[in-house]
Amino acid sequence: MAPGARTGLEIGAAVIVAAVAAVYLPQVLELFSLINATVWVSMAVLALSLGLVWGFGGILCFGQTAFFGLGGYTYAVASINFGDTTWAVPLALLMPTLLAAALGYLMFYGRISDVYMGVITLTTTLILFKFASSTAGDEWNIGEAPLGGFNGIPATPPLNFPLAPDQQLVPEQIFAVAVLCLVACYAIAKLVLRTRFGRVCVAIKENELRAELLGYDVRLHKLVMFALAGMMAGLAGVLFANCVFVSPTMFSLSYAGQVIIWVLVGGIGTLVGPVIGCVLVQMLTTYAGTLSWIDPNLLLGLVFMAAVVAVPKGLLPTASGLLARLTGRAQL
């Protein structure tokens, strides 16, 4: 199959699955479950963004939550101040993009090695966590929005229809918007990887020196890729803010770590893998929370260790490898 046709097919399949989910799930799920599902979808967007920058850009980002949280906070603060979410959304995409661009500039143009990139990105999100946690009190109001310290901003408004502040979306609609965003991000990532830019990014991940010697500006490519993934994480933050509300937890170590686990479990080097990893791990987390005979975190830790040993490449690559073996097709 031609690569172009294949990309089209994959995007088409994703659209169908999403359309079914967006229409069907709100009819069968209770409100609480639906909101929970929306949270998962927003997390899936976050996982996708890390899957893109790590799996295809080769950039080890341990602090993808920095952009996630910043997106959420920007959305909350801006929509409270504007009294309308229409312009809050683009602003909430812009801020994380700018942060990613600035951070990327420092890291890539400062020729910082991979390990330190992990350290720097993780530190960034932890600094933001510390900062957001220390914003209790009136001196931390931005316009009309109180940052609220550790409690965050419980008054984060839900999305409204464009330019119609009094027509707020109901949870069913927010769920549909979240699913739409997930599919859009997936399609964008797929298409970007088909462009020359995307292919050069993959080549850079394979061998930075060779890409450079072929005349490609490695640092610029990494910067753009990093900023793009930062924007996606910001969008995830907006969606998250719509079903929970923004608080410093969005920047926390536990969130930052979870995203990495989702991507690892789902499979680095795929786009669907991180989404599947995210949903599966979250389902497991929820289930573990209902068990009384074992500590949920302990169970998760054990499952994760088992996953790393049993499917080191991640679920999706392993599954497609098995499928290829079963159908006797040579795996490329």
């Binding site: 292919r199 050069v200 993959v202 080549a203 394979e206 061998n207 020196l209 060779r210 890409a211 450079e212 010697l213 072929l214 005349g215 490609y216 500006d217 490695v218």
Partner: peptide, 30 residues
């Protein structure tokens, strides 16, 4: 390096420098 390459200088390095995960067609195409 990328700017030097764009001047019209190509190098085959002593330690082979390739995109191991890609195919020759993809690499040369790139």
């Amino acid at each position: 390096s990328f700017a030097i390459s764009r001047l019209g200088i190509g190098i085959k390095t002593q330690v082979p420098s390739l995109f191991d995960g890609l195919t020759p067609m993809e690499s040369v195409g790139l």
